[in-house]
Simulated scan of single mutants.
Amino acid sequence: MSFLIGEKMTGGYGGADILHDCTIAADQGEIAVIVGPNGAGKSTAMKAVFGMLNIHSGRVMLDGEDITALTPQARVAKGMAFVPQTSNVFPTMSVEENLEMGAFLRRDNIQETIDQVYELFPILGDKRRQNAGELSGGQRQQVAVGRALMTQPKVLMLDEPTAGVSPIVMDELFDRIIEVARTGISILMVEQNARQALDIADKGYVLVQGRNRYTDTGQALMNNPDVRKSFLGG
């Protein structure tokens, strides 16, 4: 079984189901990417894995443990970190204060982790005293990812990390995401830039109307003519 798996999940936000027998998984050190058209249930699937909505069938397993009934806060304590697409920094707090807020559950010395974040994102070290709200969109995303890494997660979940950033910044963020995965952290990512995301993905999931349409390695999905035609612009 995968290190993290949301297995055969069916559910939604209270009304009609958005997810239908949907399965999403990621192994340790693996980048798993969820792609698909607008309204496909991509972010919903990720939020279900993180416990932000109820599923009435299926389960979520982390490192062999059934965590389906746990709150998002309890899942953070188990080693999961979630970076939402928007409102993901404290704009009136400095970069370093944002990182410190990410370590709120920890009782050990956090300085080494802060240094690791600055090594991963050097621009944040340069701007550590600057308020996060004064940064560019790409830099704010780096703060959000850095704050999530302060929890020392086993799983890092990213909802549209490159939304609204330039292609150059997108490439840089993806390079950093690859570096994070190489440390053994599982990455589960929802991404609209499907072609670029699948290019770095170990595993890809194409969702349509809350259901798994295609599941394969990122490269295999890139090479699949049906996937290319329907979801990657030819």
Results as ranks from 00 to 15, higher is better:
Arg147Thr: 10
Leu99Glu: 06
Val76Tyr: 00
Leu232Trp: 11
Thr23Ile: 14
Asp21Cys: 02
Gln28Thr: 14
Gly51Arg: 12
Glu160Asn: 11
Pro37Phe: 07
Gln142Glu: 12
Ile177Cys: 04
Gly164Cys: 04
Arg129Asp: 09
Pro37Gly: 06
Thr183Asn: 08
Pro72Arg: 01
Cys22Trp: 06
Ala40Leu: 01
Leu158Pro: 02
Gly234Pro: 07
Ile187Glu: 12
Thr71His: 07
Thr162Trp: 10
Phe174Ser: 05
Thr113Asp: 15
Thr86Pro: 00
Lys154Pro: 01
Thr183Glu: 01
Ala25Met: 13
His20Met: 06
Arg213Glu: 10
Ile185Met: 15
Leu70Pro: 02
Thr68Val: 03
Lys78Ser: 12
Ala201Asn: 05
Asp126Phe: 02
Gln152Tyr: 15
Glu119Met: 15
Pro122Tyr: 05
Glu30His: 05
Gly41Thr: 02
Arg176Cys: 12
Gly210Thr: 08
Arg211Cys: 00
Ala181Phe: 08
Ile5His: 06
Gln111Met: 02
Ser186His: 00
Leu135Glu: 04
Ile34Phe: 04
Met1Gln: 12
Asp126Leu: 15
Ser57Phe: 02
Glu30Asn: 01
Thr44Ile: 02
Gln130Asn: 11
Leu173Thr: 07
Ile110Leu: 11
Met189Leu: 06
Val117Lys: 08
Asn88Pro: 14
Ala194Asn: 00
Met80Asn: 01
Ala197Cys: 10
Gly64Thr: 10
Ile123Lys: 03
Thr86Val: 10
Gly6Trp: 09
Gln130Asp: 11
Ala45Cys: 10
Ala103Phe: 14
Ile177Lys: 07
Gly125Leu: 13
Val143Trp: 14
Tyr13Ala: 08
Ala74Lys: 15
Pro153Asn: 09
Thr215Ile: 04
Gln152Val: 15
Gly184Asn: 15
Ala181Met: 09
Val206Asn: 10
Gly79Asn: 08
Leu158Met: 05
Met101Leu: 03
Leu135Trp: 08
Leu135Asp: 06
Thr10Lys: 04
Ser2Glu: 05
Met61Val: 12
Val208Pro: 01
Leu120Asp: 08
Val33Gly: 01
Phe104Pro: 15
Val49Trp: 13
Ile34Ser: 07
Glu191Met: 00
Gln141Ala: 11
Phe50Asn: 00
Arg147Cys: 13
Leu62Gln: 11
Val180Pro: 03
Val155Ala: 04
Phe90Pro: 00
Ala81Pro: 08
Lys47Cys: 03
Ile178Leu: 13
Val117Asp: 11
Gly79Pro: 11
Gly41Ser: 01
Gly64Ile: 06
Glu7Gln: 13
Arg106His: 09
Met157Asp: 05
Ala26Trp: 05
Pro225Met: 12
Phe90Lys: 06
Met189Tyr: 05
Glu65Gln: 13
Gly138Met: 05
Ala26Phe: 02
Ile168Met: 12
Arg129Leu: 11
Thr183Ser: 12
Ile114Ala: 10
Gly79Ala: 04
Asp63Phe: 02
Gly133Arg: 12
Gln130Thr: 15
Val35Ala: 13
Asp27Cys: 09
Thr215Val: 09
Ser94Asn: 06
Lys127Cys: 04
Lys229Ala: 15
Glu7Pro: 03
Phe82Tyr: 15
Lys229Cys: 10
Ala144Glu: 09
Asn193Ala: 02
Ala77Pro: 14
